[in-house]
Every structure is written in structure tokens, then in C-alpha cells.
């Protein structure tokens, strides 16, 4: 599936929730299921700043695709980062860098986007883009 198709899936899933509670229950479930990053990556090197909860985000290149792994000590934050990983992990740096992020508005998570918000959604997005950019530069120089 393309990034766009995956985003549409998430938008469809969220559109079924009328109540805030269902939306958060879904995020919490996602958070509980998140394939944890290996303990060895839960270090300051992978810690994203700007989050009240701690978020570790790690990336590697496999067959030209960016593989993202993450963990957080807060379950809602884990749900949010899990959503991002489901969508963006397994795509090329170009695909990630060309992707739209407006699906976050459509699922009502825009409130989390302001840079002062404690979960640091914007920091996560920036970090994913930074990883993609770094891999892209590395690819081009090879």
C-alpha cells in the first residue's frame, strides 16, 4: 500500500468514532500493540526532545526502505507514534519526504500538533523526516 492509501485507512477508521473516548481507546489499543523498539535503542541518543512523555525513535535502512521503530513510556503517545510508524515505516526516503501530513487534521489530532503540546507530535514528525533526509543524502552519495 502507498503512504496515501494507508493514510486513507486511518482516516476511515477514525471517522467511525463519534466519541472522543472511542478515539482514545483506539489509540491506547494501538499503543499497547506497538512492536517495541529493542531495549538497546531506549537511550538518550534516540530520545526525542520536546515530549513530556519520553519517546524513543530509531530508524534503519533495509532494501532501500526506511524501517522505523519506537517506544514511549506513555501509552497514548505510543499510540500516536505507532500510527505514524504504521503509515511511514517500509517506504523509501523519497516517499516519506514527499508525503502529506494533513491526515492528522482529518483524524482530529491536529490539537496535538502545536509545538508546545506535551506529547511532541511535531517533534516525532520532524525526526521521521530527518531520518528520511539523512538516508536520502547517504543514498545519493553512494
Amino acid at each position: 500500500m502507498t503512504i496515501k492509501e494507508k493514510q486513507q485507512e486511518v482516516i476511515d477508521a477514525f471517522s467511525m468514532f463519534d466519541e472522543w473516548m472511542d478515539k482514545y481507546a483506539y489509540l491506547i489499543e494501538l499503543g499497547k500493540d506497538l512492536p517495541l523498539a529493542d531495549e538497546k535503542y531506549k537511550t538518550n541518543q534516540y530520545l526525542i526532545s520536546g515530549c513530556q512523555s519520553r519517546v524513543w525513535l530509531q530508524a534503519e535502512m533495509k532494501d532501500g526502505k526506511v524501517i522505523l521503530k519506537a517506544d514511549s513510556d506513555a501509552v497514548i503517545t505510543k499510540g500516536i507514534v505507532s500510527l505514524l510508524i504504521d503509515i511511514f515505516s517500509g517506504h523509501t526516503p523519497d516517499e516519506i519526504l514527499n508525503a502529506d501530513w494533513d491526515f492528522l487534521d482529518k483524524i482530529g489530532l491536529k490539537e496535538h500538533l502545536s509545538p508546545t503540546r506535551a506529547n511532541g507530535l511535531s517533534s516525532m514528525i520532524r525526526q521521521i523526516q530527518l531520518y528520511a533526509k539523512a538516508f536520502q543524502i547517504k543514498n545519493n552519495s553512494n
Partner: peptide, 11 residues
């Protein structure tokens, strides 16, 4: 986590 609790209380 206090952040999770605070977020749901806010809701």
C-alpha cells in the same frame, strides 16, 4: 503515565 491520565482528564 501522568501524561496519559492528564490527556484523558482534559478530554
Amino acid at each position: 503515565h501522568p501524561y496519559d491520565l492528564g490527556t484523558l482528564l482534559d478530554q
